[in-house]
């Protein structure tokens, strides 16, 4: 299916969901729950917390659905809501009281290593594969050391593959701000990866 056709089909599903069609709503949830969960998982660093945040996100989606005008893609809209849910959780007192870091514990990094499939590599060089495994572990830790703003912009751009304009919509800032924030996030990530990237 072409991208345009897929977008049109999704717009139809959104309209049906607005009209109360539960099957259409379920299809929308199924299509976007993965991205949403992964984003929450990396933003919050805890699988259970990510699960709750994903549930909250879709609850807000359902409640705000009548107001969705289709100016952005449905996916962008959902991810924007997910980011807001994560921000709320990260700044809430309960969250601070729990004193959790994002992927800082070794056990967490190990789990992260288990679930991340290796990217396809045309050159299965053992040394390179070892470095890649080390990089994955270090990335999990480094993301937790970034500020929330830097983590948001990096994950949305590199993980969910949103372009700068979509990022600007999701974050509610101008495209220029997104670009400068991305540059600072890369620099911060470079510093956080010093362990594996001397």
């Amino acid at each position: 299916m072409e991208a345009g056709e897929a977008a049109a089909a999704e717009a139809l599903e959104v309209e049906r969901a607005k009209a109360g069609d539960e099957a259409a709503l379920e299809a929308l949830v199924r299509r976007h729950e993965g991205d949403t969960y992964r984003l929450c998982r990396r933003m919050l660093g805890d699988p259970e917390e990510a699960m709750e945040a994903t549930q909250d996100t879709f609850l807000r989606v359902v409640r705000a659905l009548p107001a969705f005008r289709g100016e952005a893609s449905f996916r962008t809209w959902v991810l924007g809501i997910a980011i807001n849910v994560c921000r709320t959780r990260l700044t809430s007192r309960a969250w601070r009281d729990r004193q959790r870091w994002v992927s800082l514990s070794p056990a967490e990094a190990e789990r992260s290593e288990e679930v991340v499939p290796e990217p396809s590599d045309p050159r299965p060089d053992p040394e390179r594969r070892a470095w890649a495994a080390e990089l994955r572990r270090a990335l999990g830790t480094a993301l937790g050391k970034l500020t929330r703003e830097h983590r948001e912009v990096l994950l949305l751009h590199e993980m969910t593959q949103l372009d700068y304009e979509e990022l600007a919509r999701v974050l509610g800032v101008r495209v220029g701000t997104v670009k400068s924030r991305m540059a600072r996030a890369r620099a911060a990530l470079r510093v956080a990866l010093r362990e594996v990237w001397p």
Binding site: R38, R41, M51, Q55, E118, A132, L139, Q161
Partner: peptide, 24 residues
Amino acid sequence: EAQLAAMGEEPVPAFLHARIMAHL
């Protein structure tokens, strides 16, 4: 960048969809 993109392909819990729909 490849590793960050790979995070976007991580498997999700099998019961994720069921939990979301039950919550809704």
